[in-house]
Design a protein around this nucleic acid. Structure first.
Lengths: 393, 393
DNA sequence: ATCAATAAACTCGCATGACGAGCATAATTT
DNA sequence: AAATTATGCTCGTCATGCGAGTTTATTGAT
């Protein structure tokens, strides 16, 4: 994100400053990815000796960043300890804004969510929604004080250069989110992007994961080695707006032939000769169990399979994970899906195709993904430095 | 690329080992990206003090990794020095295997290519081609000795897990390339991937670049911040095999509706009602200047624009760079291209669309990209450690 | 019970790269 | 010739990681 430090003046991160905490950061990230990991195993994974592990752990314990508990002895030898989030350690606040409601929660280093507040918003006015979220966050901040080190907001909206530029389900256009907690880093994320990030990091760490989710339209993200590929402005992953659909068919996004309108409730209605439903998601849920919609749903499953295969050809993922209603669409017409997927893959990929799985994270996926994005801000040299300064003061 | 170090035993890179050379590596990468950069500017860019710069530079000079020349004084103050590749510094050998010929060259840290050998291969037998290339590399190795630190091979073939798994233009299937220079790291790359890597790093450093090139079919790569996104097995970037083409039309890859056969000489011939040409590339070159093919070429330009827009929606590049014959296709029907591109973009992207440019690297792009990939292997802690060991011995 | 075996934590001297303040140097400007 | 300015160089300091050796806590055998 930081570019052209030459012009913008002396930011002066400093090499030693950056390298200083690299071992400690690696340990913290490991504790985050695998809570309760033993210190001995951590040393093996990180490739450090026991002396270094001792040193890093005691440093982090003194800073209230990790806690160590004696591990239940398992076999001969001196028993090791398990590493956990410190009970007074850093936290992040996470927000998920959905069509009719919002949620605010707090996550600790281990990824555990403690629910804090939810609200409904009949109004579509972004200022009102954000004001309500802001009040909930103020309460969180009052409760946890300076332990809150970052805020991440997930919304069903397109994110570009740190703004929500549009959202059909929320009815938002170009919404700037002022700092919700002053002085704390804040990141905004598309809901499908963050859900995919959570799925990739939590269920398939280190792998290349293509995440596809159907709600209204289809979206997702490609996560390559735990890093979301979101392009220049952060608006990548708009898979619904590739011309995989019916050529010429207009899409509300402004383009034509979009995949978005070929896989969801709007597509089912169109195939059945019905008018466009007000709530395509609810319509699709009904259609999935309606025998009269079977052929129309199979068309969607075919489109899902063909598009997933095309994206697999482009992105070469190791895993394709389906979220939202996509697993249901696939399950409703498994043969149609499988045939289209197989036919769409390049020949040489068919011997060893990507694994197709249904995401198992459930409705917390957005908050979990937001926690990932938020801790990405915290677990940096800068984040650690400010944590230490806040402790000292 | 390194995974699961836990099981595979004690590779033990070591944290200090890795951090040790990080400053030196950053300087070497800077000298590579900007040959002739002054030491004073390098210190500013890297964010180190003059003392540290002195230390790093003298260390690298002593190791024959960089050379310093007095810079022409420009204004007041003590004149600085410019940083260059050392005349006895590390080199990489690069290979480009095309339809009817191969080239072998040598690149230094600054990216300068010195041509070494070329050959033609009427035969399509990969063993024969690789044997000829191997002989040329042996000659290179004899001339430069242990200065050659890596080999990179570009070929018009799909790369997967370090093998060439298929190539229609070369007629190859599942070719394993044995080490061409024993004891030296070797990387294989798809030609379009490497050309895009070169275009991105040399012309648009740090940006997100979508590179699209038409030869036979269409391919390319997405380079996000100087890193090629090639997926789990390295076979990403097969943009030609997304279903952007005519639905149902079979493609030699095994899938149907591929973009590949909608933008090249085969597409022009089909639109004209002619049989599939033996050499689609030559056919397209002719068609580009043939008035009778104007409408057919415009169809290809439309398909190119629509597909490029779809990929822009997915990948969110800052720049779309066209290579091969793609700039000519665009130029032959600029209005058709522009209309399709604009129509295919999501509405919110139209205000600030990605820049569309023609690659200017010419036929050396493949070798330059191979040099990038090869130096990525050299400019690592491990690469530097082996360089130092080779010096000492 | 006692003692060997085992695995892991702890101690401590060492190497190293980066830092930064102060000094030296080589150009331009006055 | 002197002042100014930008840069390179020297050197004492520091934090991190290393690694060999030591200690500690558990299991299992005698």
């Amino acid at each position: 994100m930081a570019q052209e430090s030459g012009d913008t003046g002396p930011i002066r991160v400093g090499r030693a400053e950056a390298a200083r905490w690299s071992g400690a950061l690696d340990l913290l990230r490991l504790v985050r990815a695998r809570p309760g990991v033993t210190r001995a195993e951590a040393a093996r994974v990180l490739g450090v000796g026991s002396g270094t592990a001792t040193e890093i752990c005691s440093r982090l314990r003194a800073l209230d960043l990790i806690a160590e508990h004696p591990a239940p002895p398992s076999g001969r030898g001196r028993p090791t300890t398990t590493l956990h989030a410190h009970p007074d350690g850093p936290l992040v606040a996470v927000v998920d804004i959905r069509q009719a409601e919002w949620r605010v929660a707090v996550a600790d280093l281990e990824g555990a969510l403690s629910e804090s507040a939810t609200g409904r918003h009949g109004s579509k006015r972004p200022e009102q929604v954000l004001a309500a979220v802001g009040r909930a966050l103020a309460a969180v901040s009052a409760r946890h004080g300076s332990r809150i080190r970052a805020v991440a907001v997930s919304a069903a909206a397109t994110v570009r250069n740190g703004r929500f530029v549009q959202s059909s389900v929320l009815g938002w256009r170009d919404v700037e989110v002022a700092p919700l907690l002053p002085g704390v880093p804040q990141v905004l994320g598309n809901d499908a992007t963050l859900a995919g990030l959570a799925e990739a990091r939590l269920a398939h760490p280190g792998k290349s994961v293509l995440y596809l989710t159907i709600e209204v339209g289809i979206g997702g993200v490609f996560v390559d080695g735990d890093r979301a590929v979101t392009g220049a402005t952060g608006a990548g992953g708009e898979f619904g707006h590739t011309p995989f659909g019916e050529p010429g068919l207009p899409c509300p996004c402004g383009a034509t032939g979009c995949w978005d309108v070929a896989v969801d409730g709007r597509a089912v209605a169109r195939h059945r000769g019905e008018p466009e439903p007000d709530d395509p998601r609810a319509y699709l849920i009904d259609a999935l169990v309606d025998p009269g919609s079977r052929a129309a749903v199979a068309e969607c499953a075919t489109s899902l399979g063909r598009g997933a295969a095309g994206l697999a050809n482009v992105l070469d993922p190791e895993v394709i994970a389906f979220g939202g209603l996509a697993p249901e669409v696939r399950r409703a017409a498994p043969d149609a899906f499988a045939a289209a997927f197989e036919a769409g893959l390049m020949g040489f990929r068919r011997d060893d195709p990507p694994a197709l799985i249904a995401s198992g994270l459930g409705p917390d996926a957005f908050l979990l993904g937001a926690a990932e994005a938020a801790f990405d801000e915290v677990l940096t040299e800068h984040g650690l430095t400010t944590w230490i300064e806040a402790r000292g003061a």
